[in-house]
Write a protein that binds this DNA or RNA. Structure first.
Lengths: 159, 159, 159, 159
DNA sequence: TTTT
DNA sequence: TTTT
């Protein structure tokens, strides 16, 4: 196909602490649940309205996973840049399901902390409030091998 | 919630002709099936790979719906800007399903034709190949009258 | 020209309080000085580096100008979306100069407050910390009534 | 400073053939002159108007420079993603000047060919019309060392 | 289902 | 200086 572009840009808050999983090959993957919301005033009734959208963000980029592990938690405000990917999976009843995620691959995407609420988590320790910005960076010896061919997230329960 | 951002930017091709539906209130809505794809060379095997992602784009913006109706068809290359929205629905077996779409609302989003293949469809009629660019427009009879033609900022001292 | 796209997305902090000017026709224009910065570690010396970029943002969109007037000040963190525009002007010595700005027109662009430092300004009054998000709005008295609700065509006269 | 974002997204056409320069260290840099334009109809007079904006794009990313060298020419339509940078320089009369450019650094940015007119240039040779998409890719053992500092050429073979 |  |  001629050149194409697949880019998602979100600024929002984490609805819960990130989940970090370790793949069979030792690599870590972070899953974020990110909320964005719109407010508006209903013209007819005049009342304030708000609609929240929840996004599933999956991070494969090593350096960004480290940032997620060390700095993010429920309530964190972040800027995220990734690409859309729809995954097909089969639930325990054998029903086919689809889950659309914002994916930050090894060699693209960005995640920037923007501060935000101090979280309500009980966790007290750990680094925090140190602003940290991480691009696609990564490096390491591995080249981009393309769009992460197979990885087992099939037992995830999409949001 | 603090200000948030929910933005998707895609450049790709239509997999089929757009579908236009008319709502009860007379408004039209356009549905697009847009493909983006990535190519890469497998590091180990050296072979070329390609992965295509399909996106559901839903257009509520009137002016953009008109562009879709009049100019787009299977194979068209477009730039699209909208926001992510996940819809819950129940299929005929009563199973809950989720569908994530790129939505171009009445007052946001953008769609720009970028040309692309002349389509392979047998359909011959209708306007075509006329490049046309439509922003969020505004709807109705009034369009933005353009990029702020003249204004005196000349005595500003740029940074 | 075939469809084109001209879009800038910035997240950064205001270097000083916004400047609001009133044009001859009574419209207001806001000027912002926005900083973005990059940090990295020098590979050879190992020392931390930082480079700050300053952006001139000009807001013509009425609703966004109101937000700027009422909520922004030195130190505010904002998300801004606009388009690039280079202006030619002549300084007092008669030398031609160029200034490139990020412009938020009446019918496009976005500005979202993201909180940030409480500013260092001595000014104490004025609204603050009330998170506020403003899209391209529409100008005039009518705002977009939100995501996919009913709405009336607006009878705004765009500039 | 807290995390910041500095991103420019353009779709437009090259006004002339790219210029490739070789730095002292042997690295190549590409300069592009990219046009974006807006059309609208003047409300009062009813006449069609068009305003073209010219952007200076500077490419440091090796792989993208190769694409530019091999595939782009006057008239090419491209998608470009980079960051804003304002450079200060002194002209031959000793006058300080500023130039704002869209920079594609070694480890970020994107350039995607979107086809476009076949160019009118007299140049006949060279690859052409082969759509080619290049991300920041690279990787290798070298990490991003920041904005435009010293770095090593990587010997990756782009896909 | 597109495109190369 | 491009493009329509």
């Amino acid at each position: 196909m001629a050149g194409s572009v697949n880019k998602v840009i979100l600024v929002g808050n984490l609805g819960r602490d990130p989940e970090i999983r370790t793949l069979n090959n030792g690599e870590k993957v972070a899953n974020l649940s990110l909320a964005t919301s719109e407010q508006w005033r209903d013209k007819s009734t005049g009342e304030r309205k708000e609609k929240t959208e929840w996004h599933r963000v999956v991070v494969f980029n090593d350096n960004i996973v480290k940032v997620v592990e060390n700095y993010l938690k429920k309530g964190s405000t972040i800027y995220v840049e990734g690409s859309l990917q729809t995954r097909k999976w089969t639930d325990q009843q054998g029903v086919e399901k689809y889950s659309t995620e914002i994916v930050i691959q090894r060699f693209n995407g960005q995640l920037t902390m923007l501060g935000g609420r101090d979280g309500g988590g009980s966790s007290g320790g750990g680094p925090r409030d140190d602003d940290y910005s991480s691009g696609f960076s990564t490096g390491g010896a591995n080249k981009p091998s393309g769009p992460r061919e197979s990885y087992d997230l099939n037992d995830d329960i999409p949001f």
